[in-house]
Simulated assay, not measured.
Amino acid sequence: MTSRFFARQRTVEGTSNRLGKDLRSAVDDANYLLQDMANTTAEEFATAATRIGEKVAEARDRFDDARLAVSKKARVAADATQEYVLDNPWKLIGVAAAVGLIIGVLASSRR
């Protein structure tokens, strides 16, 4: 189960990295188009505005796709966690007790 979780985590990280690159690319393209529009005619301005609109729509689509992918991955991770908790309640109770004991020992030794 943990190998599946880490594989999914790497997939989410890859999606996040691609999304960041796509966002930077869209912003760079928009900046370039805005700088290029400084000395343009009305027709060129309309063409540039259309291109900017297309870039924004592409970025929005990518964000929606990434949001859905991350949401799906989070649901899968939550389901896997719930399944593990239901299948191994005593292990989790033991781990929680051990962590509580360690925190208690550390807290009492600092006084």
Rank of each mutant, 00 (worst) to 15 (best):
F45A: 09
T50E: 10
K91T: 15
V85K: 08
R110H: 09
I93S: 09
A26Q: 00
D22T: 10
T50D: 12
R60C: 06
S108T: 10
F5V: 04
S108K: 15
K21Q: 12
R62N: 15
A107M: 13
D65F: 06
G94V: 03
W90R: 14
Y84R: 06
D79Y: 13
A38E: 14
V105A: 06
F5Q: 01
Q82L: 11
A78C: 13
A57H: 05
D79P: 03
A74E: 12
F63T: 07
M37T: 03
E13D: 13
R4P: 00
A96K: 02
A96S: 10
A107L: 08
G100N: 03
R67Y: 04
A46F: 11
T41I: 03
A98H: 05
I52Q: 00
A66M: 01
F63C: 08
E43V: 08
A57T: 07
V27T: 12
V85C: 02
G100V: 01
V99E: 02
R18N: 10
M37Y: 07
A80W: 05
D87R: 06
D65C: 04
A30M: 12
W90H: 15
A66E: 01
M37E: 03
T2E: 11
M37Q: 02
G104L: 01
V56K: 13
R60H: 08
A46Y: 04
V105S: 00
A98M: 07
D61A: 14
E83F: 14
M37C: 07
E13F: 13
K55W: 03
G20R: 11
A48F: 05
G104Y: 02
A59V: 11
L92S: 02
I52W: 00
D87C: 11
V76S: 15
T40W: 04
N31C: 12
R62G: 10
D64K: 14
T11V: 05
R10K: 10
V56T: 08
A78Q: 10
Q9V: 11
R51L: 05
D87S: 14
A80L: 09
D29M: 02
V105N: 02
V56I: 13
I93D: 06
G53Y: 00
D87V: 06
A38T: 11
V12K: 00
S71P: 02
A59N: 02
A80Q: 04
A80T: 13
V76E: 14
L23T: 03
T2Q: 12
F6T: 06
R67A: 07
K72T: 07
L101E: 06
K55Q: 08
G14W: 02
Y32L: 15
S16A: 07
K21E: 09
R24S: 10
R111L: 09
M37H: 04
Y84I: 04
A42P: 03
K55G: 01
V56P: 00
V105Q: 04
L68F: 09
V76K: 15
T50S: 02
R75Q: 15
L23S: 06
D28E: 14
N39A: 13
T40A: 14
R4N: 07
T2P: 04
L101G: 06
V56Q: 08
T41V: 01
Q9D: 12
R4H: 10
N31Y: 11
